[in-house]
Simulated scan of single mutants.
Amino acid sequence: MICRHCQKENPESIKYCIHCGKPLDEPERQTPPVFDPHKEEGLNDDWSKPVEEEKTEVIKPSKKNSHVPVLIALGVLVGLLVIGGVGYFMYSNHQHQQEIARLEQEKEQEKEARRKAEEEADDLQDKNEYLEDRNDRLEDRQKDENESEDHYQYGFEIDTWYKANYNMALRNAGDYNATQTGHLRKDERIFIEEIISGSNGSYWGRSSSGDWVCMQDNDYDYLREE
């Protein structure tokens, strides 16, 4: 409520102005003038007229743009979605690269395993072929020994020339622990006159010079007939 006297705003529930102390609900009364018939001036009867209340223009607060908070919220949401999308894309790409690397590693491991398996198969085939050839030669020697025992000993032909398949040691007896007396080079010829059996399935041949050389054991054939 606006005070009629000081024109200041007051709460609606009070009866006296909190600024000037005058009553708010009663209009200010004026004393009517005394009529004087000798005076020519007319009476001023403004007092009898109701006092017009001064209208106070209430300035309404301007409405703020209610769309601004919504736009800000939408902008923040879009930003979060963009950041989340970029992060998810980077994470997915990283996972994809790791999966590719893992598959490539597994592919290389499988390739290496196949290569080793092929090498082992080739080695096994070579060993089987070697054993078959060795068995054939042993059978032939046994057959020849049965036909002519005087010319063979333990399936080996005696009084004949042999060639070394490897660099061999010459010893003073037909045994691995015998004293070494010399060397027999690879592809070098040696004349064998006598053959005896030794340890580890070995067979030893005595040369014409009296030296002994291992001709064969469970692992290798050291000499071959010329």
Rank of each mutant, 00 (worst) to 15 (best):
Lys60Glu: 14
Val68Asn: 05
Thr56Lys: 08
Asp46Arg: 09
Leu74Gly: 02
Asp36Thr: 06
Leu77Tyr: 04
Pro69Trp: 03
Tyr91Met: 11
Leu71Thr: 01
Gln95Met: 10
Leu43Asn: 03
Lys60Tyr: 09
His96Asp: 10
Val51Ile: 15
Asp45Arg: 11
Gln95Leu: 14
Glu40Met: 10
Ser92Trp: 08
Ile83Met: 11
Lys63Ile: 07
Glu104Trp: 00
Val51Glu: 13
Asp45Leu: 15
Leu77Asp: 01
Pro61Leu: 10
Gly42Ala: 05
Asn65Ile: 01
Asn93His: 14
Leu77Arg: 00
Phe35Pro: 00
Val51Asp: 06
Val58Gln: 08
Lys49Ala: 04
His67Thr: 14
Leu71Ile: 12
Glu52Tyr: 00
Gly79Phe: 12
Ala101Ile: 11
Gln98Tyr: 02
Glu54Lys: 15
Asp36Ala: 03
Lys55Ile: 15
Thr56Trp: 11
Glu106Asn: 10
Glu106Arg: 14
Gly75Arg: 03
Lys49Phe: 04
Val86Thr: 07
Ile72Thr: 09
Ile59Cys: 04
Leu81Cys: 08
His94Ala: 12
Lys60Asp: 05
Asn65Phe: 03
Lys63Cys: 00
Glu40Lys: 15
Lys107Ile: 00
Gly87Ile: 06
Glu106Thr: 04
Glu99Arg: 12
Val68His: 04
Leu74Met: 10
Gly42Asn: 07
Gly75Thr: 06
Leu81Val: 12
Leu80Thr: 05
Gly87His: 05
Pro50Tyr: 04
Gly85Met: 08
Gly85Pro: 01
Ser62Ile: 14
Val70Pro: 00
Val68Lys: 11
Ala73Ser: 08
Val70Asp: 03
Ala73Asn: 07
Leu74Glu: 02
Leu81Ile: 13
Val68Leu: 09
His96Thr: 12
Leu71Gly: 00
Leu77Pro: 02
Val70Met: 04
Lys55Ala: 08
Asp46Glu: 10
Val51Trp: 09
Tyr91Asn: 15
Val76Glu: 00
Leu81Met: 12
Glu53Pro: 07
Trp47Met: 02
Asn65Gly: 01
Val70Thr: 09
Val86Asn: 04
Ile59Asn: 10
Glu40Tyr: 07
Gly75Asn: 03
Asn65Val: 03
Val86Glu: 01
Glu54Val: 14
Met90Ala: 06
Val86Ile: 15
Asn44Met: 03
Asn65Met: 01
Gln109His: 10
Gln95Thr: 07
Gln109Leu: 13
Lys39Glu: 09
Glu99Tyr: 03
His67Tyr: 08
His94Leu: 11
Lys64Gln: 08
Val78Phe: 11
Glu53Trp: 05
Pro61Asn: 07
Gly79Pro: 02
Asp46Gln: 07
His96Met: 12
Asn65Tyr: 03
Val76Phe: 09
Glu53Met: 12
Asn93Lys: 15
Val68Gln: 08
Glu40Thr: 11
Gly79Thr: 13
Gln109Trp: 06
Trp47Phe: 12
Glu54Gln: 14
Tyr88Ser: 13
Asp36Met: 01
Lys49Gln: 09
Glu53Leu: 15
His94Ile: 05
Leu71Tyr: 04
Leu77Val: 10
Leu80Gln: 04
Asp45Thr: 14
Asp46Asn: 09
Met90Arg: 13
Gln105Cys: 02
Thr56Asn: 06
Asn93Ile: 00
Gly42Asp: 08
Pro50Asp: 08
Val70Leu: 11
Val51His: 10
Phe89Lys: 15
Arg102Met: 12
Phe89Thr: 09
Asn93Pro: 00
Val70Ala: 05
Gln109Val: 07
Asn44Trp: 03
